[in-house]
């Protein structure tokens, strides 16, 4: 894969094929942790860290262990266990060695295990036949796309809190309407494909 196709992959993954707004992965945390911009940014950071690492580790395990032993059918079980173990490990590591970062991200780490974007990227890497390097880059780009989307969403929700929203639309529905409008806006990027 040449540099230009890789660059194109990164840009389309971040904008046109945004993980949240067009692929619907990681919706739970996108809706749940987007009440404040700072916390949304924290979640985005934590996810970027874990997603890049997990797509790298899953890639290595898939190509060097599962494929040689013809165990591809175990990939779902193996990947989810790797993600869960990795999140636990990252949490322990940060707690011991990078305490300030742990203070900032620690609270979101357990939520990431059930974030479908992490498992989704690991599975998509296999499905699309990406090698370890491209897979890791794809993971990083996906996470950046998520980060951008959740920060924009949090920003809009902060503006929204003082508005007079019709009662049935308060909370969940108005967030979904906002997401729909954001999704339409991100559709504009489809032209760059």
């Amino acid at each position: 894969m040449s540099f230009s196709t890789l660059l194109l992959l990164v840009i389309t993954t971040i904008l046109a094929n945004n993980v949240v707004l067009s692929q619907f992965l990681g919706i739970c945390s996108f809706l749940g942790v987007s009440q404040k911009t700072e916390t949304a940014a924290g979640m985005g950071g934590a996810l970027t860290f874990v997603l890049t690492l997990s797509s790298f580790v899953c890639g290595i395990l898939y190509h060097f262990i599962l494929v040689p032993f013809h165990l591809e059918y175990l990939k779902t079980i193996v990947f989810i266990l790797i993600v869960a173990a990795l999140v636990q490990f990252v949490e322990m590591f940060l707690k011991k060695y990078m305490h300030s970062l742990y203070e900032a991200l620690g609270i979101y780490l357990p939520l990431i295990t059930t974030n479908c974007a992490v498992l989704g990227v690991a599975l998509l890497n296999v499905q699309k036949d990406y090698n370890i390097f491209v897979g890791t880059v794809y993971g990083l780009a996906t996470a950046i796309g998520y980060w951008i989307a959740i920060v924009i969403m949090a920003f809009l929700r902060e503006k929204m809190t003082d508005n007079d929203i019709p009662r049935p639309f308060r909370g969940f529905p108005i967030v979904m309407v906002t997401a729909a409008l954001m999704s339409i806006a991100f559709f504009g990027f489809a032209g760059i494909k």
């Binding site: 619907f24 529905p173 108005i174 967030v175 979904m176 309407v177 997401a179 729909a180 339409i184 559709f187």
Partner: peptide, 10 residues
């Protein structure tokens, strides 16, 4: 398309 999903569910 994607926006319709959000809108209908909302």
């Amino acid at each position: 398309l994607a926006p319709g999903a959000f809108l209908v569910l909302a």
